[in-house]
């Protein structure tokens, strides 16, 4: 059984040191869980992040042979966004520009590793 409050608390733990918010979304871009300061644009972020992930994943399947896509980092002028697949969901971390790429990557890998097993139990087979 998925406990939304517990899931949100886990996501919240990543929101330190310049991380604005952490999102969990499905591959269609629908928001599953959110932790962070709400600016009422989480749904837009989720939709865009899922769309970018799906584009890269689809094209890399056709061109990278046996090298699956592991992580995407979008660097923008005022911040950056990291996206990673966990079970059949997507984990998305929204950070300000000052956050180091290495720290962002480690936080993403740690959170994804922690969530992988419980989310795999509720994930529908694809």
């Amino acid at each position: 059984m998925l406990k939304p409050k517990a899931l949100t608390r886990v996501l919240e733990q990543a929101n330190t040191g310049g991380i604005h918010c952490t999102l969990l979304l499905n591959q269609e871009g629908s928001l599953m869980a959110f932790a962070g300061k709400s600016e009422k644009k989480e749904h837009v972020t989720a939709a865009i992040a899922a769309n970018i992930w799906m584009s890269y994943d689809k094209n890399s399947n056709a061109t990278m042979e046996d090298k699956p896509l592991e992580l995407i980092v979008l660097q923008c002028e005022d911040g950056c966004v990291a996206i990673k697949k966990v079970a059949n969901l997507l984990l998305c971390i929204y950070a300000q520009k000052s956050v180091g790429l290495g720290l962002l990557k480690v936080k993403m890998e740690t959170l994804a590793g922690y969530l992988k097993e419980p989310l795999s139990q509720i994930a529908a087979p694809t």
Partner: peptide
């Protein structure tokens, strides 16, 4: 893929997209 993804990333509310890193195994 990059041109479309970059345009979409510029709408995330964190300014214009400057680069995209994709990690594979």
């Amino acid at each position: 893929t990059f041109a479309i993804a970059s345009e979409q990333a510029s709408k995330l509310g964190v300014g214009k997209n400057t680069s995209i890193i994709s990690y594979y195994s």
